[in-house]
């Protein structure tokens, strides 16, 4: 009885494998290669004939030391590898009240023993008893907390201390590969990018508005700006 069932199970597995894992995926692959070749192969983008990435996969725009390049729009923080590692997609998975996300002593920053003049919510780097310090004697703060990211964002873009920062600019995405930023985030970066490229700010702002990916059918998803496409368009402005 059991033996007959097992044999039937084996035969059914074999038949369904051929149909569901052979015929079906090959048929889908065939349709994709014929009808949606660009999408099925990764929505790759080319510049001067060379593939520079995929418009769906975000990229880092930093120098070798990891500093943001001011002439490029900056994507969101990324938890994928060292940042935008497309072979290691990942979110931070930090919980909503984890100090490594939100900072230390939010209720009572005066009593945060690690506070620095710029960051009252500083979370020190290193292990208990051996926290790293800066040359000026202050604690070195975990750069990936929202307070630290806000400070860095304001500094990079010449915003006033304490001014609110678009939330997408200081939080890591779910995939670590988010190619998009919000329109607000792009506009806040426009002045700095224009300055670094010696372009009139109005021209950069105008470019952003032309590159907004609006919600599909006016309602699905959110309005976004694709950083990879936007930076390529910026480079093209310079070429022209």
């Amino acid at each position: 009885m059991l033996r007959r069932q097992l044999v039937t199970g084996l035969l059914v597995t074999a038949c369904l494998l051929v149909l569901l894992c052979g015929v079906f995926p090959l048929a889908v692959w065939g349709v994709g290669q014929l009808a949606f070749n660009h999408q099925a192969n990764g929505s790759l983008v080319k510049v001067h004939g060379k593939t520079v990435g995929s418009s769906l996969i975000g990229q880092s725009f930093t120098d070798n030391a990891g500093n943001a390049l001011p002439q490029f729009f900056q994507p969101r923080p990324s938890a994928a590898g060292k940042g935008y590692d497309a072979g290691a997609s990942a979110g931070s998975n930090l919980g909503p009240s984890n100090p490594n996300l939100i900072g230390n002593n939010l209720d009572d920053p005066q009593n945060n023993p690690y506070r620095t003049p710029s960051d009252p919510y500083c979370v020190p780097v290193g292990a208990d008893g051996g926290y790293q310090k800066n040359p000026d004697g202050t604690y070195a703060c975990n750069p990936n907390t929202v307070p630290e990211r806000s400070i860095a964002y304001r500094q990079l873009n010449g915003l006033a201390a304490g001014s609110p920062v678009p939330v997408d600019a200081v939080t890591a995405s779910g995939s670590g590969l988010d190619p998009d930023i919000s329109v607000a985030n792009a506009l806040d970066q426009a002045g700095r990018v224009a300055q670094a490229r010696h372009l009139p700010p109005a021209q950069v702002v105008d470019l952003i508005h032309r590159r907004i990916d609006h919600r599909a059918w006016g309602v699905l998803g959110e309005d976004t700006v694709n950083v990879v496409d936007l930076n390529i368009a910026l480079d093209r402005l310079g070429d022209a």
Partner: peptide, 9 residues
């Protein structure tokens, strides 16, 4: 709350 979320969604 955009931590862990994608801009497009």
């Amino acid at each position: 709350n955009m931590e862990g979320k994608e801009t497009r969604f």
